[in-house]
Amino acid sequence: MALDNDTLKELYRNMVTVRLLEKRVERLVTAARIPCSGHFGTGQEAVGVGICGPLRSDDYLFGTHRGFAEYIGKGMAPAEILCEYYGKATSLSRGRLGQHLLKVDVGIMPLPSSLGSEFGMSVGAALSSKLRRSGQVTVNLFGEGTAGQADFGPALEMASLWQLPLVFVCNNNQYVELAHYRNVVATEDIAPRAGGYGVPYEIVDGNDITLVYDATERAVSRARNGEGPMLLEFKTYRRGTHYTGDPGGYQPREEIAAWEKKDPIDRCRDRMMAEGFWAETDEQAMRETIEAEIEAAVQFAEESPYPDPATVTENIYAQGGDKS
């Protein structure tokens, strides 16, 4: 299934939404309108948005803490994200999750605060869909830093051993918290580690959304056809800091400037314009719509009530269980 123009426009729109929404939320964090700190991903939007392109809505996605790309990509609305960040009663979790975005009915699965704890869970989701013969694929997106977690190897092992419909996606944005990844990651590339477990891998330019889409499409089709897991490593770059308020300074200006030239949104737009199916007027109209949507979402979140404290003990345990 090749990437057609309409799909590319949709992916482009998602990337721009992510960029604008992250900027807006960052301002709200700084202004202390929302209680958490933020982790944003300016410059790496193509990965999260692109990998969701080939996914079915019932495919499982385990995402990352950075930015909104895969969450917008998999079908979360800006208002849903904002209400979670505000901790309002109108959020999907009724104020319980904050940054740990979750939307089960579009396949967005838990984001553990202890990054890497999802490796086993994604194995379980993939095992489950295999045992149920549901045809669902699980995508586990993680950063190059999280590849250091204990369950990474065993997850590759289990996925390979049981030939699970599981696609591991490493979003290598070159910074692990407050340092360049080579301070804490021994190898230039994460992907070859998959080879040790008999899992095929590809290393792909993560700032070209068409390449991201195509590579994911190949891996997902393979998985859906019962050919087992794959690992994709997308090379990209985090132009912002680790969190809002991080003083930064550890990323060389020239490095940031060089990656600005490879901005995935600019590249996508230039390509669409060059190919003649996107015009400046389209751009203007789209941005105005997105900004209006975001402002409406902010207003909705602002005006939403906080949860009733009496709900705090609800749903600690699932009631009933199997009564059949």
Partner: peptide, 11 residues
């Protein structure tokens, strides 16, 4: 211009 909040613990 208001006092910004940087990070989770800044008061």
């Amino acid at each position: 211009i208001t006092m910004p909040r940087w990070g989770m613990i800044m008061e």
